Every structure is written in C-alpha cells, then in structure tokens.
Simulated assay, not measured.
Amino acid sequence: MSDIRAYDARPEAEFGDYVALLKPRVMSLVVFTAFVGLAVAPVHLNPFVAVCSILFIALGGGASGALNMWYESDIDAVMRRTARRPIPSGRVSRGEALGVGLFLAGLSVMMLGLAANWFAAAFLAFTIFFYAVVYTIWLKRSTPQNIVIGGAAGAFPPMIGWACATGGISTESLLMFALVFFWTPPHFWALALFMKDDYSKAGVPMLTVTHGRAATRRHILAYTLVLAPFALWLGLTSVGGPIYMAVAVVMNALFIAGGWRILHRSEDAAVADGYKAERSFFKLSLYYTFLHFAALLVQHVAGGM
C-alpha cells in the first residue's frame, strides 16, 4: 500500500521531462560540431544519408545524457543548478532514465551503421561508452582531472561526422577533436570558480575543490595557451582559410586575455564583484567553440562558391 501511495505522490512526467533527460543544450553542441565535421569533409554525402547520420548522432548524444543523469541523480539532487532535473525532482525514475539511455544507445549505433558506415557507428558506440562509463562512473568522482580526460567524449562528435562521410580519420578531424578537447577544461573550470560550493557539497573532486581556486586559475590560462596553436593549425589544413583564420585569431586572443585576467585576480576581488570576470570568461567560452565551427562551415561554403 505504501508503494502505491508513493507512486501516486510522484509528479506525473511530461514529454518535456524525457527530452530533458537527453540534455538538449549539450546535445545541440554535439549535433552542430558533428554536422560541421560531416559537411566540411572532402567526400560528398547523399543529403538524406547526411540528415539521418546527424539524427542518429544526436540520439547517441541524448543516450549519453540519459545514462549520465541516471548515474548522477544523487549528485544532481544536492547541486542547485541540477536539483530541478527530471530524476532528482521525482518526475522520472532512475529505472526509466536507464531504460531510455540504453534503448537510444542501441538504436543510434545500429541505425548509424546502416545509414552511414560501421566505422562511424563503432566510433559512436565508443563515445557513448566513454561518456557513460569512463567519465561518469569512473572519473567524475575519483580525480580532479575528470573534466580533462572525460572531455574527450564531447570532442569526438566532429570526428564521427567526418567518419560518416569518409569512413575514417584524418589530420583535419583530429584537429577538430583537439579544438573541443582543450577548450573543455577552461570552460568548465571557469564555471567551477563561481560554483565551487555546489561541487564541494556534492563530493565531486573538481579542481577548485581539491587544489583551490588559485591553482584552477593557473590551469585555465595554461589550457588557453595550449588550445590556441591547435585552433590556428586547423586553419592551415584543407578545411581552413582566411575566414576561419580571422575568427580563430580574434577568439583565441580574447580567450588568452580572459585567462590572463582571471589569473591575476585576487579571491577577495572576485568575491567582491560576484566573480564578474570569471562569469564573463565562461560566457566567452560558450561562443568560442560555436564560432570556430561556424567559421569552418562558412569557409567551406565560401570555398565551394
């Protein structure tokens, strides 16, 4: 009887709650970078096959998000920015999230193999495994390098898009991977600078928790300096050109300047102005990847014209 009452008391899930399980905002970056990787590849892909490929990559990204929410529901429940997600809010059960994640993972891999090629499908399967198991289950709660190593999962989509068109890997796709991979740590560490209490409360060993904010500031600048050469190198490949290079030069100069500004701020000054510089750097990081990949797309269209 108590189980029935508990079930009756649970808020009724709506369609939007199941969509939220797929982390649509994160999926949007996955879809866009995968689309650019596919579009700029030197092999023309049938438009219908291309659309299907992006759809199944998106489903694979959604599967990763659902599996992540399934495993991290206890963490999400104690963090302010995640407490209203479908599982901690009680609208979706952990079992439902696991079922959705596993179903979409299998469906996306199988359908991508049939639509594009099995190399791309295997790459997608590995990416889902890497995000759900290597990052979420293993790294997230065990090391402050969680976001560094785990960031590879978010960097694979442009390589998968490229593989859908070409059936393989190239220097261009590896550099697109590097662009997202080295961008991820400063992006998330900037967020952690003004969200440290959440990670500490949840027991997540983010760099700000284990090494402090001063060390995190140094790491942010270091990664912006490592990132810039890879971003510029991509502009010298077959997918680059003057349009991309102009965007890359400006954005990386701004990114390095932002990292430098963050490094030289005292904690007292940051607290006094509500982490204004750190929040500005985080917002800049949201535009950074989008503008680089958008520039690749514009460069490709301009080259074709």
Rank of each mutant, 00 (worst) to 15 (best):
M1S: 12
Y7I: 12
D8L: 14
L29G: 08
F32L: 14
F32T: 07
A34R: 08
F35P: 03
F35Y: 11
A41C: 06
F48V: 14
V49C: 03
V49R: 02
V49S: 04
V51K: 03
I57V: 12
G62R: 01
N68D: 02
N68V: 05
W70R: 06
V78T: 13
R80T: 14
P88C: 11
S89K: 07
V92W: 11
L102I: 11
L104H: 12
M110I: 14
M110T: 13
A116P: 00
F119L: 04
A120Y: 11
A122Y: 02
L124M: 07
F126W: 13
I128V: 15
F129G: 02
R141T: 14
T143C: 06
N146V: 11
N146H: 12
I169H: 09
I169W: 05
L175W: 08
A178N: 10
V180L: 13
P185C: 04
P185W: 10
W189D: 02
A190D: 07
A192N: 02
K196F: 01
S200Y: 05
P205I: 07
A231M: 00
G235S: 04
L236V: 09
T237N: 01
V239P: 05
I243F: 08
V249S: 04
N252A: 04
G259P: 13
S266N: 12
L286P: 01
F290H: 15
F293Y: 15
L297W: 14
Q299D: 09
A302I: 09
M305H: 15
